[in-house]
Design a binder for these strands. Structure first.
Length: 487
RNA sequence: GGCCCCGUAGUGUAGUGGCCUAGCACGCGGCCCUCUCAAGGCUGUAACGGCGGUUCGAAUCCGCUCGGGGCUACCA
């Protein structure tokens, strides 16, 4: 058994929460729960230029929506607060000074213009190593000021030794080699730390034992390990997850893929448990004989890092649709009905719950549960039940496809139903079968089509007889009559 | 350009030298069921990027090659 792990997800509040945040959080949380540890949310807001108001709250809301609540976060607090990097600024500075004093870091006054020019030249000359050229290394401010490309406010850079260790062990991939780093900036001119410094200091101070992050960080890991060593701290374990992809195989992005926005799934009417299962599947394929549909508890019970995939998966929406259907069908009908109502309100399908709306949704949900892909599909399917008879819109295409005997069928149906003793699905079916299939010698498929169009306005609908029960006898007869008159 | 990660059907994958004439799921096609559409049942389709090794034997090991991705910021 493993020691209790502390894991963390560290989103940047730079817009709508990214689906990758939930993806990482799922694996973070799974490992924390598995080992009896804690899952922490830390907000990485050191990039002041890209901050977006409200984005942080959306992170908490969407993680809660997915049942991936943090044990510690800026929202709920915790023993290692503050959990927001912008509130930890004074925390980082002493370590920077310590590194400078020890000769592991140095000031750099190069202007961004000079840096850009240097990079361009390196590109043009197709030089092998493209890192910072160390112009400022060993110089005082005044010495450096004599040289071109000077900027008054310095940054602090790491002094990467030539023998930096490039290999490390990864929980998912085993032994991994990373590229040679350059003299990375760790403290920006505005006094904010870069990710590299902040992540190491915070992870250490917050006692994070297992760093779960995207594959794109593999190349930065040697820098982080160097900082741990210089600061005399114990390193965490690393788990680099495969990157989610767009259909064109590039790293998933909001520009190319609406599903890169975590909120998109909620807006589309996906169930959080289905999305959670889907995200799990992307990086944690079932072994032979195992099920794809699995709960979070089952996921946790079985969890092993070695089972995590190393290949970046492309989002397969068809699979998500299928999974969502599986979860919808597994929900108790009353709960599904409540979620449909909730979704209708949240999405704007309904401004408010119409009279009898909730009851109608409840009684109609059993009829449509197995016909739904998302919650968004529900209301359109039962709109005819929520519409007053005189406002029912009958689709002209549906009418056009009816046979020439439609009028006769409707008359016979009305006749059979007018004096029906009990208004139940079974009784309605029996009466209509007798009158149409038996009486008019029609095939069931053609016998019921005109009735369906009259009742629902469409060619395709939830089960007809059950729908008529919900609608009631008066409405049903009135609709049969209206279509008869309109033919 | 340099370094790193990855490469099984349309998609996600199982597979760690013989059990693989390559399994599963989604998708797609067919049939059954059936008041439409779904759901469900049965069934079909389709893949080891390429080339060389190692071996009695390779999807599995090695080399090269091709392809995709990532990093190469005072972004994370």
């Amino acid at each position: 058994m493993n020691a209790p792990a502390r894991t963390r997800v560290a989103p940047s509040p730079t817009g709508d929460p990214h689906v990758g945040t939930a993806y990482m959080a799922l694996f973070d949380k799974a490992w924390a729960v598995r080992t009896g540890g804690q899952f922490v949310v830390r907000i990485e807001d050191t990039d002041r230029n890209r901050l977006v108001a409200g984005s942080e709250q959306q992170v908490y809301d969407s993680l809660r929506w997915l049942s991936l609540e943090a044990d510690e976060s800026p929202e709920v607090g915790g023993p290692y607060a503050p959990y927001r990097q912008s509130e930890r600024l004074e925390t980082y500075r002493p370590y920077v000074d310590q590194l400078i004093e020890a000769g592991h870091a140095y000031y750099c006054w190069c202007s961004s213009e000079r840096l850009a020019q240097m990079r361009a030249e390196q590109q043009a000359s197709k030089q092998a190593d493209t890192g910072y050229d160390r112009l400022c290394l060993g110089l005082t401010r005044d010495e450096r000021a004599e040289l071109p490309g000077f900027s008054e406010t310095p940054v602090v850079r790491m002094l990467i030794p030539a023998d930096v260790e490039l290999s490390f062990n990864d929980l998912v991939r085993g032994e991994v080699r990373a590229p040679m780093p350059d003299d990375q900036v760790i403290l920006k001119a505005d006094g904010y730390p870069t990710y590299h410094l902040a992540v190491v200091v915070d992870d250490h101070l917050m006692q994070i034992t297992t760093v779960v992050r995207g594959e794109e960080w593999i190349s930065s890991t040697p820098k982080h390990r160097l900082l741990y060593r210089w600061l005399g701290w114990q390193e965490p374990e690393y788990a680099h997850m495969p990157l989610l992809r767009n259909p064109d195989k590039s790293k998933i992005s909001k520009r190319k893929n609406p599903a890169a926005r975590l909120l998109w799934f909620r807006e589309q009417g996906y169930l959080p448990e289905a999305l959670r299962n889907f995200l799990q599947l992307l990086a944690y394929p079932p072994a032979a004989g195992e099920q794809e549909v699995s709960s979070f508890d089952e996921f946790v019970a079985d969890f092993r890092w070695s089972k995590v995939s190393t290949v970046g998966p492309i989002f397969d929406m068809k699979k998500l649709d299928w999974l969502n259907g599986v979860y919808i069908r597994a929900l108790p009908c009353d709960e599904l009905a409540d979620r449909i109502v909730e979704f209708a309100l949240a999405s704007g399908q309904w401004a408010e719950v119409p009279p009898a709306g909730r009851e109608i949704v409840r009684s109609a949900t059993p009829l449509i549960a197995e016909r739904l892909v998302t919650l968004a599909d529900a209301l359109p399917k039962i709109g005819f039940l929520l519409t007053p008879d005189d406002q029912l819109v009958v689709n002209p295409d549906a009418v056009a496809k009816l046979g020439p005997d439609a009028g006769q069928v409707l008359d016979a149906a009305s006749g059979a139903l007018a004096d029906l003793g009990e208004w139940t699905a079974a009784a309605i079916q029996e009466a209509l079968r007798g009158a149409l299939v038996g009486g008019l010698a029609l095939k069931p498929k053609f016998a019921f089509a005109p009735v369906r169009v009259a009742i629902t306005g469409e060619q395709v609908s939830p089960p007809l007889f059950e729908s008529m029960v919900i609608l009631g006898r008066d409405s049903s007869l009135s609709r049969l009559t209206s279509l008869r008159a309109a033919l």
